[in-house]
């Protein structure tokens, strides 16, 4: 089967790849590029662990083909912190104890970033609803929501 040339910008870097059409964006990020921060929890779009931002929108990367991401800009969890500073959402997850096993955390942080960029004044109810595409099995969500709420405040005040 013919492989396709694909050019992706992931975080700040551009990758020119040759991939099989059957490889998802998730597989491309993890196995071809080697950015394993994005996780595979269900591979049916239901758990959100694979969330990345494509052209400004959070998507479940397990449901998108790598070839469909050609020419697009992708942000993964690895692209949120600068060299010397965490993203406020990352810092809030630490300060509020918003993770336990941590497997869902990249997906939650990336989904939260995309959502707060869209709705910086989100209420708790809106955040709880908007993060419904992400499953966490450890925390019961209380501390995740606290973290996102406090990050939103920090970002508003920044």
């Amino acid at each position: 089967m013919k492989k396709h040339p694909v050019s992706l910008t992931v975080n700040t870097d551009t990758y020119d790849l040759l991939i099989e059409p059957r490889k998802t964006l998730l597989a491309t990020l993890r196995d071809t590029i080697g950015l394993t921060g994005t996780k595979e929890g269900c591979s049916t779009g239901d758990c959100g662990a694979c969330t990345v931002i494509v052209d400004g929108k959070a998507v479940t990367s397990c449901m998108m083909l790598g070839v469909s991401a050609n020419g697009k800009e992708i942000t993964t969890v690895e692209g949120l912190a600068s060299r010397d500073q965490l993203h406020p959402i990352q810092q809030a997850f630490i300060d509020k104890g918003g993770y336990q096993c941590g497997f869902c955390t990249p997906g939650f942080i990336v989904a939260s970033k995309a959502y707060l960029d869209e709705n910086p004044n989100a209420t708790e109810a809106e955040i709880r609803h908007a993060l419904g595409n992400n499953i966490c099995r450890c925390t019961g969500y209380t501390k995740i929501i606290e973290a996102v709420m406090s990050a939103a405040e920090a970002m508003r005040n920044a």
């Binding site: 779009g45 969330t51 959070a58 998507v59 479940t60 449901m63 989904a111 959502y115 595409n133």
Partner: peptide
Amino acid sequence: VGGVQIRHL
């Protein structure tokens, strides 16, 4: 339909 990430697709 689904959640936000699914509806973006």
